[in-house]
Design a protein around this nucleic acid. Structure first.
Lengths: 196, 196
DNA sequence: CCTACCGATCGGTAGG
DNA sequence: CCTACCGATCGGTAGG
């Protein structure tokens, strides 16, 4: 028998997770109660447990959904034959895109992963480390091909990732800058600091 | 009568605040219990209240101590007659210094200020906004004096502040880089992206 | 600084 | 999906 397709193909569990992401961003994982989340959805707290296993499971869902998205995007660019500077630029643009369009989930994954329980905590950190190692390898390649100045690759990756994460501030300030020009300025500032 | 000077001139309240900063960084404000904090200090939870008024008060103390330090440093540089690029460089170096040497408090002020209660929340945000406005004005000045490229000053400040905050990652990774070379690489990457 | 304790709230379950 | 409820833990107070 075929699965029933709900409206817009969104399960109740996904709706819960989305609302949870907003609350976890605003008040933190520990600072958000299941009763608060239930109220947002117009149901009783106990009813949540028909769709999710635990509060902790919601956090896991959010964190690993985000991690998977970054990982699969990076895998795509790895098979590219473009110049390193172009690959790095694409990665920076992808990060900016995620920050702007998946703000709540990305924010939660960035800040609340610490509240994950084992073995999820270790798994998450492992994925993050491997992601950063791949970026560092890319920068190294760019230095070898003489595209980039001889900067410490670790520090370059740190600087780029952090600067892009700074869009969190931006969301908070709700400035009316055109997204495209914002993106261009950040990419310029970061790449210009790398290039010879 | 002269005030009694305790050993190292550190009050019990300051000791409590320091330990709280470490816990709040590791587990968040909401995720840390007063019983946990008391255990770290080897006393009962109720004994804490002889030195502090409330859990919330500890967070206020941490956040505003950090804010004051950044503000007074910025005021000092404002009276400087140096070139804008030098002033910006000094500010970047001060931020790096704070991140490395006052890590717990800075981290808590950066992440847990959201948990402040009114009117402290509004006051904190106001101070932050005014700090950023001063930095933006500085970048504008640098563009006028032709020291910097014609980048959007808001975006430049965002990129710089975020990149420096990224030292949070660095602390986590506990790399063995020399502090000075780390500092130099970040300053270079960020300033080179601004300069003509 | 401790013992003893408070009301409130937490995540979660039983049963329908 | 709800009502009713559980044990655990929370921030904090009284009194010494």
């Amino acid at each position: 028998m075929a699965k029933i397709i709900t409206a817009k193909n969104v399960t109740k569990k996904e709706v819960i997770t989305q609302h949870a992401a907003v609350l976890f961003r605003q008040k933190g994982f520990a600072g958000t109660s299941m009763r608060e989340l239930a109220e947002k959805l117009g149901i009783e707290a106990s009813s949540l447990y028909n769709h999710i296993g635990s509060k902790s499971e919601i956090l896991q869902t959010i964190c690993f959904a985000v991690a998977n998205e970054y990982n699969s995007q990076l895998e795509k660019t790895e098979s590219s034959s473009e110049k390193v500077a172009v690959v790095i630029e694409n990665i920076i643009r992808f990060h900016i895109h995620m920050m702007l369009h998946r703000f709540d989930e990305v924010f939660v994954a960035n800040h609340e992963w610490k509240q994950l329980q084992e073995p999820f905590l270790s798994n998450f950190l492992l994925q993050r480390k491997s992601y950063e190692a791949k970026l560092i390898a890319l920068i190294k390649k760019g230095i070898q091909t003489k595209e980039f100045v001889n900067i410490n690759p670790h520090v370059a990756v740190l600087t780029i990732l952090s600067a892009v994460r700074g869009l969190e501030f931006w969301q908070r300030h709700k400035k009316n800058l055109e997204q495209k020009s914002l993106e261009q300025d950040i990419v310029y500032h970061l790449l210009n600091g790398l290039k010879k």
